[in-house]
Nucleic acid binder design. Structure first.
Lengths: 348, 348
DNA sequence: GAGGCTTGAGTTACCCGTAACGTTGCGCAA
DNA sequence: TTGCGCAACGTTACGGGTAACTCAAGCCTC
């Protein structure tokens, strides 16, 4: 009864005692930074193996008054394949540099993000990677107060809190708009969702709208209040759009998943793609290749985006100078779900 | 020069001093477990807001000699949509119970997993969730030594290390085999990949092979050495399979992504589905709905799998009794990419 | 008004490593 | 022999928070 069983963890002191050396000597051996004889090293390591000692990193961070090797990574949701790839890129790169990812799924809400930021900061992370550029006031306060490096990813279109990696969504929307106008489309639809933090999609839509307007066309928008920008919202969003605006010749979707839904709806209604209606997505999902026709889309290397974000954070942590904004770039995939360029495909 | 600037973090002691109380009183207020007056509480909280104090959870864990609220979660890769969903289920559930996910992508290798386990354990997590049932000897040693609760997910087909959540992959393969035999197929192909830890897929294949053999059919296997079980391996695997065994009437794939690849290959070769050849996948990806015909597949609720794993871990941590093995179940999606049952579709 | 109980708040020890510094003992040169 | 330098190792003092204990003041009771 004298003491609660504690945990059965082996401490450095126990290893040291078993090896007949002081804690400090054992510590030096564990860190391998010299200051001990070969004989001592062997004695200590023998006990480490014997007792199954695992260092307690909490204590290390605590003692050194340094930050941990944690990196907090916030992602809206993993249902979106795109973010899953970003996360994969981040974690792989962080891992290869001895960092650990502490994950946070924010569900696109400020409240979740703020909550998570507070928790993560209390674990003394080395830095943070956040998706999106929009954060609550309190979140911004905490981030600034922490003095930690922060990389905002995905949406480049802003003056970042600290560092930023992503693409210019406005431009990508603009390019798609100009492309469709160039093909001769004028009455163009857009189907997307409404999210608190879906600023990137909003920026794309803005760019798109501008390009179409510049080209003398008009954009007919259909924004559904739905939790995720996925297949079914695309399907039903298309239904609603076409119910209200039959003359639409082509539809641009917030992402490929929604475009799939729209494609499914149009096909089910007996429409032919691209003869009766054009379809364009965004994101260029690998799975798009399953379609009989290549989906018109915008390609972004999500894996690279994640890797770059991690690299920049690591560089910053090493004290290297880093760029504030890093543009990953994108390129438009013409595809076959919109009509061919005027002047004929065969003409040289 | 006397002292390195340290970090500018506000400690509890500073809050206490500013509020004119002792560290201990401030601690009690922070934890809200009573033992102080309302006036004191207000004084302390006022300083917390003023100074922007954030508790240091490392110190809490350290002091209490308890475990942290971290849960280590290992996932093979996020390129596979299925695992992304599992992770989403886990993190959401853990988060709602005040736990944090420390992610590890193992790339299907023991070496990566072992490495990651060692690191994660050094952070004193509350428990672990690991994908798969196969681990290196040293990993098993460390896990047992830690005494922490461990949930192995995905593959139920084993005596777990501690707890296990998943489905019986053998059975799911068997059911698919019996189903295809029932449709009259006899010469059946299988296309999959070879991974160190892809035991689940192997179990499915075993079950499948048994059912087909029981029904008097034969399975013609094509296992490609490839990093991920995705679209292109499915495409080229199909090409190789059909090059070697033209008489194959139907192909079962390791997962839907590979089935998509196969579908694409067959369609490109002018074959008609299911008249010329049958196609069956596994996993029932949401995106499958984009196909003009419903893909024959096996449905597993990945999100639920993740949630359940997290729930079981949390229950265990609360000291509640938990089941050692939890079967999530699956069901076969007949789909339209295989031929209709003998006796005609219209028959009752 | 003395004694006992409750409440509020301070003290001390400790968790597990590490930094900084102190000590020991040996080899070698003067 | 003495002195010095250096390698090898021990001691002490943290770091931020918490548990357990102590102490003081206020209130009530008879």
């Amino acid at each position: 009864m004298s003491k609660p069983p504690k945990n059965n963890k082996i401490s450095l002191a126990e290893v040291a005692r078993a090896a007949g050396v002081s804690k400090m000597t054992a510590s030096r051996v564990m860190r391998g930074e010299g200051g001990y004889s070969e004989k001592t090293r062997e004695r200590v390591m023998a006990q480490v193996d014997l007792l199954g000692y695992l260092p307690n990193r909490l204590a290390t961070v605590f003692a050194g008054d340094t930050s941990s090797t944690f990196v907090g990574v916030s992602i809206p949701d993993l249902g979106n394949e795109v973010f899953a790839q970003v996360l994969e890129g981040i974690d792989r790169k962080l891992g290869s540099f001895g960092h650990q990812t502490v994950l946070g799924l924010t569900q696109h809400t400020h409240a979740e993000e703020e909550n998570w930021i507070q928790t993560v900061l209390s674990w003394q992370p080395a830095g943070l990677i956040l998706t999106g550029r929009s954060h609550s006031v309190r979140a911004l306060d905490m981030l600034r107060n922490s003095g930690l490096p922060v990389v905002e990813i995905w949406d480049l279109n802003s003056s970042p809190l600290d560092m930023s990696v992503g693409i210019n969504h406005f431009d990508s929307g603009f390019d798609m708009g100009r492309f469709l106008i160039g093909l001769g489309y004028r009455a163009i639809g857009y189907v997307g969702t409404l999210h608190d933090t879906a600023n990137a999609a909003t920026a794309r839509l803005d760019g798109f709208t501008k390009a179409v307007a510049d080209g003398g066309g008009i954009v007919c928008k259909q924004l559904c209040l739905h939790d995720t920008a996925s297949f079914y919202p695309g399907y039903y969003g298309t239904e609603q759009l076409l119910a209200g605006a039959r003359e639409v010749e082509c539809i641009f979707y917030q992402n490929d998943s929604m475009a799939f839904g729209g494609l499914q709806f149009c096909t089910a209604r007996g429409m032919h793609i691209p003869d009766d209606i054009g379809i364009a997505g965004w994101g260029n999902l690998p799975v798009a290749s399953v379609l009989p026709k290549r989906l018109t889309s915008v390609h972004v290397s999500h894996l690279k985006l994640g890797q770059t974000a991690a690299e920049i954070l690591i560089a910053k942590l090493s004290g290297e100078p880093v760029k504030t904004c890093t543009d990953i770039g994108f390129h438009l995939i013409p595809g076959a779900t919109v009509k061919s360029p005027p002047g004929g495909g065969a003409g040289a």
